[in-house]
């Protein structure tokens, strides 16, 4: 598999703050990576280093197996870091043309990308007249100008209204479906869960977990049950073999099985005792729960 970016033992210190602590990571072509972590966990600093805007304290990184110097490699990378940065006095189109000049490519993709993010009608409007959502979409168009090998997004939905968040997500999902490698830093877990195949969890600049989303934390599922009488339900469940725990959470009884649980058998067992459930559902632990468990236990 082709490695797009490899980071080895990266460190960054700001005075006494150890913002990135011995971080190593490999980005393979075609995967969608999420970097998860609370605010101040070193996500943006790490991205800043590989994007040539923050100086590292020690460690190494190499783009495309080190075949290109960083600034040449960045021409094949599309990146959006926090706030969209453009020249306020230039129009959308002029801003993108400037990016084309920097990347050393022709202007022929400008229209296509502006159409992709729905800004073609506003191509002649000055950047300073744009709303935050439009600015962020222009940033995405700019990042896609060269059909990048990898798209790096740092908190792309920060500060947007629900509509704006949805537009940006749809664009990201569209790009991901076209096979572009994506590296998405976010503290919004459902955002990562929806689009990412791999995840890297950071805290205090350290890697807590690195691997597939599926492989993170336990994959044990649990069951939710509701019925007219919760007390009777709990009493009945206590007699059922192979259950490891039965807890009451508000109006729902949550059950964990020692091994696989056959819902049909459980339902039959309960109905024989005169209990008819109106809710019986298997649940997987969400990324959020896994993330919280992970960061709590390690801190």
């Amino acid at each position: 598999m082709e490695t797009i970016l490899s980071i080895r033992n990266l460190n960054k210190r700001y005075g006494r703050v150890h913002a990135v602590n011995d971080l190593s990571l490999d980005i393979q072509k075609g995967n969608v990576y999420g970097i998860l972590g609370p605010n101040g966990s070193g996500k943006s600093t790490t991205l800043g280093i590989v994007l040539n805007v923050v100086n590292r304290s020690s460690g190494d990184y190499a783009w495309f197996d080190g075949k290109l110097p960083t600034h040449e490699a960045l021409k094949k990378v599309g990146a959006i870091i926090e706030r969209p940065n453009f020249y306020p006095y230039m129009s959308a189109q002029q801003n993108l043309e400037l990016v084309c000049k920097i990347k050393g490519i022709g202007y022929h993709k400008v229209q296509e990308k502006l159409e992709l993010v729905g800004l073609w009608e506003r191509k002649d409007s000055k950047f300073r007249t744009f709303s935050l959502g439009m600015k962020q979409r222009l940033a995405i168009a700019s990042a896609l100008l060269n059909d990048p090998e990898i798209l790096i997004l740092d908190e792309p939905t920060n500060g947007l209204d629900p509509q704006g968040i949805r537009q940006i997500r749809e664009i990201i999902q569209l790009i991901a479906s076209q096979g572009t490698t994506i590296l998405l830093a976010s503290h919004l877990l459902d955002e990562v869960e929806k689009v990412c195949s791999h995840v890297l969890v950071l805290q205090y600049g350290k890697v807590l977990y690195s691997g597939t989303v599926a492989g993170m934390g336990s994959q044990q599922s649990y069951w939710e049950l509701r019925s007219a009488s919760l007390e009777a339900l709990q009493t009945a469940l206590a007699q059922y073999p192979d259950l490891s725990s039965i807890t009451l959470e508000q109006d729902t009884v949550v059950v964990q099985a020692k091994s696989g649980l056959d819902a049909g058998l459980l339902n039959k067992f309960l109905s024989e005792r005169g209990i008819y459930v109106h809710h019986l559902m298997e649940r997987k632990r969400s990324l959020e729960q896994q993330f919280l468990t992970l960061t709590e236990t390690k801190s």
Binding site: V53, A73, L74, K75, V77, I102
Partner: peptide, 10 residues
């Protein structure tokens, strides 16, 4: 910052 990210060297 943006110019550097877009692939200009310092």
């Amino acid at each position: 910052k943006q110019n550097l990210i877009d692939g200009m060297s310092k």
